[in-house]
């Protein structure tokens, strides 16, 4: 990686297409949105991530699979600032060093995350959940005097429609079904307008029909957004259709199309046992 990455203001390496960025802005000049390089994390001697390196291109839809304990959730913790890596680099675009930012800063920079267990604000209404997630100035002073503009209301209703919860807008979110909660969390993610979406087992507990619709939604999002989906459901991964990365014992075991990794003997060994 070039040293320019460490500066607040950076330009792309090549002469000719250089451009100036404001500090904190996402630089996609290399068409790569996420770099992980040699990331290691250990808990009491247990190596959750072991020299993990991974790059995600802008607009890509990437599925991550791997057996339990492969380090999928820890990887997301590192990307979102919840866990600090013991060593290694994590960059968002060319310039934003994720290991130096906290969760809200990372969220603000444009990474959204959906948890394995749906975490929504159960006592707030569905509408309020989306309102809170909406991309806006999230500092205290602004919140004190914030009012929804007509345009913002429209954005919330658009998302409500998209996640099919229009009729539930005023119900407390805690009363939704499990699948609906998953959708609400995805909706909150969309309200954030992130550049990169991290989705941890997004279709767990969904009906087949809901799963199918989710796959359609993700595919439609790819291109303008980048998505990283952790999933166990192979038919869902297949429906996504993008590249697949297999994690095992904290590092990348195989990468490629689903058909290719499924044919990889090492992957088969890991999944079926030795």
């Amino acid at each position: 990686m070039s040293t320019a990455m460490h500066d607040g203001i950076a330009s792309s390496g090549r002469a000719g297409d250089s451009h100036v960025l404001r500090p904190g802005e996402l630089d996609l000049s290399h068409k790569v949105i996420l770099y992980l390089e040699d990331i290691s994390v250990s808990f009491d001697g247990f190596k959750a991530l072991n020299n993990l390196s991974l790059t995600i291109d802008a607009g890509e839809l990437r599925a991550i699979i791997g057996p339990n304990g492969a380090g999928k959730t820890t990887m997301m913790d590192v990307i979102t600032g919840k866990t600090r890596p013991d060593s290694g680099k994590a960059f968002f675009g060319q310039t934003l060093d994720l290991t130096r930012m906290n969760e809200p800063e990372i969220a603000h920079a444009g990474i959204g995350r959906k948890f394995q267990k749906p975490t929504i604000f159960e006592n707030h209404s569905v509408f309020e959940n989306l309102e809170l997630a909406m991309k806006t100035d999230k500092r205290v002073w602004k919140s004190l005097f914030a009012q929804l503009s007509g345009e913002e209301r429209d954005r919330v209703s658009d998302t409500l429609k998209r996640i099919r919860l229009q009729t539930e807008a005023d119900r407390p979110a805690g009363l939704l079904s499990h699948g609906q909660k998953q959708w609400l969390e995805i909706g909150m993610l969309l309200m954030q307008e992130p550049r990169l979406l991290l989705l941890d087992e997004p279709v767990a507990g969904m009906t087949d029909e809901e799963t199918e619709r989710t796959a359609e939604l993700f595919v439609s999002l790819a291109g303008q957004h980048s998505l990283v989906v952790v999933e166990h459901d192979m038919s869902f991964v297949e429906a996504l259709g993008g590249q697949v990365t297999v994690l095992h014992e904290g590092s990348v075991l195989a990468e490629g199309s689903l058909a290719k990794v499924q044919a990889d003997p090492r992957v088969i060994e890991v999944y079926l046992g030795r």
């Binding site: 969220a107 959204g112 975490t119 309020e128 809170l132 999230k138 919140s143």
Partner: peptide
């Protein structure tokens, strides 16, 4: 509403960009 959200699920609040 942000305060109540912090009360109920603080880490979620952080991940949607509030401090």
């Amino acid at each position: 509403r942000v305060l109540a959200a912090i009360r109920d699920a603080e880490s979620r609040v952080r991940f949607i960009g509030y401090q």
